[in-house]
């Protein structure tokens, strides 16, 4: 308590700065990347401390960061900004599960959402699309669209390995993370990253079949970058 502040470690100094903001009991906290300078291990501790502090004192807080993980871990609601415009404003789950644009889908998530680009028209009521001759089921499409460049968006954890699937690729690399692993697969549509349990080991070059979780797929119009309306997105508005 009586230490002069230059004698403190980085984390403690940032704690002092936060404490100094809190003692004033202001109406609103404005925080500008307060954790940006901390190393990885301590960073996680401080993210938890900050959110627990908020759970106790419930002060209105606006926090800006370029770190999507901080935003997801701490926010009640996130505004994803791009060139001065809010691309989407919603809870972390909404933004993650139903990204409004390709920009949001790519910015949030680590690794980010995978995109499989293809060209097709869309009619209301469609329940599947054809990507490279492979029919892929998806949430019911709620909008008509002339033939255009589209992208199917799939989160890494919504890809499963299934040798009988027609969608195939070869393993480019695997990243072991303890509880799970990220496997990068080279396909005709580019590199796809899947998050799967760590118990199976993969060989580089090994051929694998990929199965996508149909209920969780997003579809984007590549020209505007906006999400195509589908039952996945309308459910959100009603429920």
């Amino acid at each position: 308590m009586t230490n002069p502040s230059p004698g403190l470690a980085g984390g403690d100094r940032q704690r002092v700065a936060l404490g100094r903001a809190i003692v004033r009991r202001p109406k609103c906290f404005l925080m500008d990347e307060p954790l940006g300078t901390l190393d990885a291990e301590f960073h996680e501790v401080m993210v938890h401390e900050l959110r627990e502090l908020h759970n106790r004192i419930h002060a209105t807080t606006v926090y800006v960061t370029h770190d999507q993980h901080e935003a997801m871990a701490m926010a009640d609601k996130i505004a994803v900004m791009n060139h001065g415009i809010i691309e989407q404003f919603g809870t972390p789950q909404e933004i993650y599960n139903r990204p409004a644009s390709m920009y949001v889908a790519d910015f949030i998530g680590s690794p980010p959402m995978n995109f499989l680009k293809f060209t097709s028209g869309l009619q209301k009521g469609m329940r599947s699309v054809s990507v490279e001759g492979v029919e892929i089921a998806l949430p019911e499409v709620h909008q008509d669209m002339a033939v255009s460049e589209l992208a199917l968006g799939v989160r890494p954890e919504h890809i499963r390995f299934n040798d009988s699937s027609i969608l195939r690729g070869s393993v480019y690399g695997a990243e072991y993370l303890g509880t799970n692993q990220i496997v990068a697969v080279e396909t005709g549509k580019g590199l796809l990253k899947a998050r799967v349990p760590a118990d199976r080991t993969f060989r580089i070059g090994e051929t694998v079949g990929l199965e996508l979780n149909s209920e969780k797929l997003s579809l984007f119009d590549c020209t505007s970058g906006r999400a195509v309306k589908s039952s996945l997105y309308t459910e959100a508005r009603h429920g």
Partner: peptide, 13 residues
């Protein structure tokens, strides 16, 4: 206690 929604998975506190 509280839940961190990280999207692909959640941290339960």
């Amino acid at each position: 206690d509280w839940i961190e929604h990280l999207g692909d998975q959640s941290h339960l506190h």
